[in-house]
């Protein structure tokens, strides 16, 4: 470095101070700001989420005597139960209009696991009538229904879960 180009020492220290201040400002600022707008002010959220093992695709069936004879001795179980489960179809309507629908296959290598869904949906806040239907049988017919009126404040979350143990759809919402 050419000495002649050097600035006076106090000025150099001042510039160092500025450099550190700029560094701190960038870190301090972006560590929390600018806030990210994930919803409009008048929006609420619906979370549709469930993990459900649907009905088997085919019912179990008695094997005939000839069929049993053909099988290896250790495989000779009376019933033939295919492991594959049905697809799960869900329709969620809000105020009579479709909000979300999905038709999802079971998980697992042999299509024998639970069907899992998670979706986050922004909706206008306010009173709404929600209607949920689910089909989990081989015929694809909607065999579960639930309907509820919910008044959602801005930012409030409505969770639409499905728990077959609790008899079907469960709507929960925060304050």
């Amino acid at each position: 470095m050419a000495d002649s180009a050097k600035l006076p020492t106090p000025l150099r220290y001042l510039l160092q101070l500025l450099a550190y201040a700029a560094f701190a400002a960038v870190i301090g600022f972006f560590s929390a700001k600018p806030a990210y707008r994930q919803l409009a002010d008048n929006e609420a959220v619906v979370k549709l989420s469930f993990s459900h093992s649907a009905q088997l695709r085919q019912p179990c069936r008695e094997r005939s005597a000839e069929e049993l004879a053909k099988l290896a001795p250790n495989m000779r179980s009376k019933q033939d139960c295919p492991r594959e489960r049905s697809r799960v179809a869900v329709e969620l309507d809000m105020d009579g209009k479709s909000l979300y629908r999905i038709d999802t296959p079971p998980s697992g290598l042999h299509d024998d696991g639970a069907a899992t869904v998670y979706r986050r949906l922004a909706i206008p806040a306010g009173p709404h009538r929600f209607r949920a239907r689910l089909a989990d049988g081989p015929d694809g017919k909607f065999n579960y229904h639930h309907e509820a009126d919910v008044d959602l404040a801005p930012g409030q979350v409505l969770i639409v879960d499905f728990l077959s143990g609790s008899g079907g759809f469960v709507f929960t919402h925060g304050r």
Binding site: F30, S31, A32, K33, A35, Y36, R37, Q38, L39, A40, D41, E43, V45, P154, G155, Q156, V157, I159, H173, G174, R175
Partner: peptide, 11 residues
């Protein structure tokens, strides 16, 4: 879990 802020401060 029952509430989402419209404007979220993030790092």
């Amino acid at each position: 879990t029952g509430h989402v802020s419209a404007s979220q401060s993030i790092d």
